[in-house]
């Protein structure tokens, strides 16, 4: 084992071990954060399920066709607004790059503006000179329900005033602990499927159907954004946990490999010494 001294190998093993400790700690932190994030998803779900069912009821029993937020707009100047949810930090496997790649591919030949959420999204769109609405939400971790409602109101107003013809949301679906899928969905115009065969329930809308609809839609969108944010956070932690688990395993493999080399080198040195003594050099 000439060339690599035992000391050098020993140093490498030591540095590998400290790396392993870091990745191991990160994995455990991510695992605990993941549990919280998963609980949040389950808690937030009923909220917008109920709001969505109310919206469906309104659309279904609607007689006048003038409800806002519903009509798809067609025309040459089709302006899109994208809400993109990514993470604040790296070292989460493909979590950030997957969602950002998906969005970049989708907006390639569109007139699109981005509302980034999370530091990594802000940095990415900055670096690629893609127009942003603003970058107030560079912290995905601390973003609360209130912020989601502010975003929803802002975008609904923009849609109402004709600044955007379409509003989409890009986030990462939490399929399972081992699998997360980047996805986009349309927020506005609303695609509520008005089922024809459903019975027409007599519902009293106070003060009026239109007013209720106008009030509820931004709240529904806020709820959807919040739900997507919860899903994305859980996905980020799951992706980080998996990435760090792999990194820890790789470190283990490398340590085993280096230990073998170290022992070989040590044995070679001993053998050489004995040979030298026996030969009487």
């Amino acid at each position: 084992m000439a060339g690599v001294s035992t000391k050098e190998i020993k140093n490498r093993i030591r540095s590998m071990e400290s790396t392993k400790q870091i990745t191991k700690a990160m994995e455990m932190v991510a695992a605990s954060k993941l549990r919280h994030a998963q609980a949040k998803i389950i808690e937030s779900r009923p909220y917008f399920e109920i709001i969505y069912s109310v919206i469906q009821d309104i659309v279904r029993t609607n007689q006048d066709e003038t409800l806002p937020y519903l009509t798809p707009r067609k025309g040459a100047a089709h302006r899109c607004a994208y809400v993109v949810i990514a993470g604040d930090r790296g070292l989460a496997g493909g979590y950030n790059s997957n969602i950002l790649k998906l969005v970049t591919a989708q907006i390639k030949d569109k007139d699109a503006e981005i509302l980034p959420i999370g530091k990594k999204a802000v940095d990415y769109f900055h670096a690629h000179n893609i127009p942003m609405i603003h970058e107030q939400y560079a912290q995905a971790e601390t973003m609360g329900v209130g912020d989601c409602f502010t975003v929803a109101k802002e975008l609904s107003r923009g849609f109402d005033e004709g600044r955007y013809d379409e509003v989409r949301l890009a986030y990462t679906t939490f399929v399972s602990v081992l699998s997360q899928r980047p996805d986009t969905m349309q927020l506005l115009p609303l695609n509520a499927e008005g089922e024809e065969n459903a019975e027409k329930a007599d519902i009293l809308y106070e003060p009026g159907r239109r007013e209720v609809f106008e009030k509820i839609t931004p709240e529904y969108i806020g709820g959807v954004i919040y739900g997507a944010l919860c899903e994305s956070r859980a996905s980020e932690q799951a992706a980080r946990r998996t990435a760090m688990d792999t990194a820890t395993q790789n470190a283990d493999d490398m340590i085993a490999d280096l230990s073998l080399k170290f022992n070989q080198a040590r044995q070679a040195a001993i053998t050489q010494e004995i040979t030298e003594i026996v030969a009487g050099i």
Binding site: V54, D57, D202, I203, L204, Y205, E206, E211, V212
Partner: peptide, 19 residues
Amino acid sequence: RTTSGDLGIMAGHVNCVAP
């Protein structure tokens, strides 16, 4: 408190939606 004032609900209320 709804947007159009206080609303009281008791059992057997008519179907109703209010912001």
